[in-house]
């Protein structure tokens, strides 16, 4: 599979001397074509800085990067990518349609293709009825949708989104998620920054977790959220005697929920037999998954990255 975006040992420090901020430290990651990749991290982790390096808005101090086969910041790569910045602002005196015309022209699209793309993108983000309204009158969520349309105007292969659902209501978020999944189905690559973990978890194929400018974990969402050999059972008719029959396996109990650790399917079946013979009624059983949020919080807590 080809690589849409690759970073190898990227470092970026803002400022000098005692005021220096090491925003990125030796960041390496790669995003394959056609996947949705989420870059996660708390405020100030360096997510936006990474994107700015990709686009050449800031310059890296060390490391190599390539985007769509060109070095970071290349004008050629920008022809085939779309970007939704955080806190983006458009000229308030323009209408939504005029904003798209202006930025569409800057993306190198000309008529009649431009008008066609404007119609399409406005429809995709659900803003068709607001196209003639001045941006001044837009709400935050509408602004975000317009930003997304702007990012899609040149029918990009790679879409880079910084907090795409920022300020958008739950219905709008769901719509944006659907738009992103639809784009992925069309074969586009999506790179998104977020601290809204549940959202990223729902749509990303792979994520990287960043803390204090370093990547502390990278992998497929399923792999990151899988917990080794722990199963969740719902058991009714529960009593201390019943539980004592498997006490050595129990990780945690909470009402009818019992979490047990079993190293093999045989152990699991044995444990269930014990429970049933002691009078317990098993209602459901499933391998336990932690949410991305749990993984994230754990990682950030235990991450040994420190301020330099």
């Amino acid at each position: 599979m080809d690589i849409a975006l690759a970073a190898d040992g990227i470092s970026k420090t803002y400022g000098k001397g005692s005021k220096a901020v090491h925003a990125l430290r030796d960041v390496s990651l790669s995003v394959s074509s056609g996947e949705i990749f989420g870059l996660l991290g708390k405020n100030g982790a360096g997510k936006t800085t990474f994107i700015k390096c990709v686009l050449g808005i800031v310059f890296t101090q060390s490391g190599q990067g390539s985007v769509l086969g060109y070095p970071f910041g290349s004008v050629h790569a920008k022809e085939r990518l779309g970007y939704l910045p955080e806190n983006h602002r458009y000229p308030l005196y323009l209408t939504g349609e005029q904003v798209l015309t202006y930025f569409g022209k800057l993306s190198g699209i000309s008529e009649p293709k431009l008008s066609q793309r404007i119609d399409e993108t406005l429809k995709i983000v659900g803003m068709a009825e607001w196209r003639k309204t001045k941006v001044r009158k837009y709400s935050k969520g509408m602004m975000q949708r317009l930003g997304l349309a702007q990012a899609l105007i040149n029918d990009p292969q790679l879409i880079i989104l910084d907090e795409p659902t920022d300020g958008v209501d739950p219905v709008g978020r769901k719509e944006i998620r659907e738009v992103l999944l639809h784009l992925k189905n069309e074969g586009k690559t999506i790179f998104l920054n977020s601290h809204l973990l549940s959202e990223v978890e729902r749509i990303s194929d792979r994520v990287a977790i960043m803390d204090l400018g370093k990547i502390v974990r990278e992998g497929r969402v399923e792999d990151l959220t899988k917990t080794e050999n722990i199963y969740e059972l719902r058991v009714s008719n529960i009593s201390p005697e019943i539980l004592s029959s498997i006490s050595s396996l129990i990780v945690r109990t909470d009402g009818t929920l019992v979490e047990i650790r079993c190293n093999s399917p045989e152990d699991l079946n044995l444990a269930m037999d014990h429970l049933r013979s002691a009078g317990g009624i098993i209602e459901s059983m499933a391998p336990k998954r932690s949410s991305l949020e749990d993984v994230f919080v754990d990682l950030i807590k235990t991450s040994n990255v420190t301020h330099v």
Partner: peptide, 14 residues
């Protein structure tokens, strides 16, 4: 301006 420059610099324009 913040929020504007990022948009401009993401376009394929030297």
């Amino acid at each position: 301006e913040k929020g504007t420059i990022d948009l401009y610099l993401s376009k394929p324009v030297p």
